[in-house]
Design a protein around this nucleic acid. Structure first.
Lengths: 344, 344
DNA sequence: AACCCTTGTGTTACCGCTAACATATCGTGG
DNA sequence: CCACGATATGTTAGCGGTAACACAAGGGTT
């Protein structure tokens, strides 16, 4: 009958064990472990020693349920292999590290249904905030975000209406600005190379902005090429060869990302195509990773880390409230000419 | 007094709300939502409709506490910007997607203290399993892993003693094999280029294996160069220039990762250094990302995705148990000669 | 008709922790 | 010397679910 005295080795430790080992109440142990309330130094030391000796790790599940507070921020992004998103994550972590909040990542693989599922899953842990890439979501997802009762920040994009707050750049504008710079530099026969991803709305918007600005100059995209899967560097080569073979008089190639642009650049250099004289090149993202290429590729920075930081700041500032105050932060990427786009 | 009839709009939804809206007990709602137990079709439909109408999202915190089950797997890795780890993550997700388990990522930035903190934090959510990179941890971390009472899989490395299970490759062997291949190909004046990261134990082991195998052949590393931070591609160029300037008679450069190797390759090509005749090059990782380079870099695959998959399989197979059965899976990376290392 | 099983649903008692309040202890000024 | 505030600690009642068991109703069997 001395059940409570039996040392069942494999039973998980609870506050009660620490409480018994240190001779104070569970409440006091809880206070010590959270650094709350007035506890005498003697007691604090006693408790900390007991906890350490037992190897006690608090149970946040129970804690969260009791306190109705969960220090997690759901971060929902399309992919981790895109290079871009790890950078956003870095920005987010940088800021959240200064707070009690912790990011938890969910990956959607660019699938709206998958996004819905991931969001549902994350919300079921009742996070203190949500950071989610893009402005396009299923109706159900938008409903969940609205009903979540926590700050929601939609990031990366600002062409559209956010549920709550928004931090991003205008991809339409990126496309437009790039088109203008290309035309201003004197190029006229322009090709576009991108991904075959109808669900990558930001790539789509860049393309729309691009064609729209070209149209204003009385031009249109002379040829285009799309790819799916595989190594982006290789695909960039292959697509460049294909498009230049099909339409040899192209004098500019606009790539929807830096990786395929780099592949194209390598192809041109190897095949004696003079860049940027004979053919100009530009990409998108401003990947520092690629700084070491033979020529620096013209590109536009996507402000990834800054977007992450700002989104995290918003969530942190509004944690505990039921929205992020519908703030709208629009960042402005700058064009980097590099060495593959003539200046004027 | 009619408190329970007041529709307080901003109160979070609970099972009780769904229960009241559908006219059955909370327990039955719970059963429907989890798909457990026998529930009549009529009731099931009624409940699902009510839940959907209200926009109810179950509270996993409460669920986990009550059921003593948490379908999360803690995944602890040093970095997300390393390219390698997103690939491991992909392998893990691939397998866990087939199970009720969900990965949760923690990033340590190669800091043992940071790792300890992240581990503590993750264990406090009582995950069903832990996948953690490396075999080197602080004593406290190892104690926590041992005491966690869940399957623990240490990944990426297998030169050392795991706490429980282990899935990885031998980095010592990678270094040795590469050294042997280089010597066999006839190179004798060998330089090493790597990261200045005392805490990257796997890089260290590769280096140790490398020098050890060279020593057996009566050789030693003729010169070395280390870097920290910055764009790996750029650093690869700079270091290559530096080492070749300082020690012009080097005939082989072994890089601790493919990214700096690629930078070195670009440098050599641009400066008319004949590869692999005049100078041979090799890296480590087998990054498909770099397939599109002018010459394919000699490298050794780190089996990243496969490690992720196998680790996830182990955790899934042993979920609910208190260990992963101390299994040891050693994968064998294969040397890819590419076009920068002479054969024989 | 009494019995038992099956199927569907409800009841009760927690899970491990914390908010809020209650209580004990002590020094201190009036 | 006692009321009183400050400080330190304990008690109680949940948080929102779920396990385990209880129970009601219906349909065969014997």
């Amino acid at each position: 009958m001395a059940k409570e005295e039996i040392a069942n080795e494999n039973r998980p430790l609870t506050l009660r064990d620490v409480s018994m080992a240190s001779g104070v109440s569970e409440m006091t142990v809880s206070r010590v472990l959270r650094g709350r309330g007035d506890v005498s130094d003697a007691t604090r030391t006693k408790v900390l020693e007991a906890a350490k000796m037992l190897g006690y790790v608090p149970n946040k599940i129970a804690g969260a349920l009791a306190s109705q507070r969960v220090n997690l921020v759901a971060v929902i992004i399309p992919s981790l292999s895109n290079l871009v998103f790890p950078e956003v994550m870095t920005g987010i972590s940088e800021v959240l590290d200064e707070t009690p909040l912790q990011p938890v990542v969910g990956v959607t693989n660019y699938g709206p249904e998958r996004e819905e599922a991931v969001l549902y899953e994350m919300l079921s842990w009742r996070p203190s905030g949500v950071i989610i890439a893009g402005l396009e979501h299923t109706d159900a997802s938008r409903a969940m975000l609205r009903a979540a009762g926590v700050p929601v920040v939609e990031i990366m994009d600002c062409d559209g209406e956010p549920v709550d707050a928004m931090v991003g750049i205008s991809h339409r504008r990126v496309g437009r600005e790039m088109a203008k710079a290309i035309v201003r530099a004197g190029y006229r026969r322009i090709g576009f190379l991108g991904t075959k991803m109808p669900l990558d709305h930001r790539a789509r918007k860049r393309f729309e902005g691009f064609t729209e600005a070209l149209a204003k100059e009385g031009l249109e995209v002379a040829d285009q090429e799309f790819y799916q899967g595989g190594s982006a560097l290789v695909k960039g080569r292959e697509m460049t060869e294909a498009i230049l073979t099909r339409t040899p008089d192209l004098d500019f190639l606009y790539y929807s990302n830096d990786m395929i642009g780099a592949g194209g650049l390598l192809y041109c250099l190897e095949n004696g195509i003079e860049v940027p004289g004979q053919v100009g090149l530009a990409g998108f993202n401003g990947l520092r990773l690629l700084d070491g290429l033979p020529k620096k590729l013209a590109t536009m920075d996507a402000c990834r880390a800054e977007i992450g930081r700002e989104a995290a700041r918003l969530v942190a500032a509004h944690a505990g409230e039921d929205s992020a105050g519908a703030e709208r932060h629009v960042l402005t990427p700058t064009l980097e000419f590099g060495a593959t786009l003539k200046r004027r």
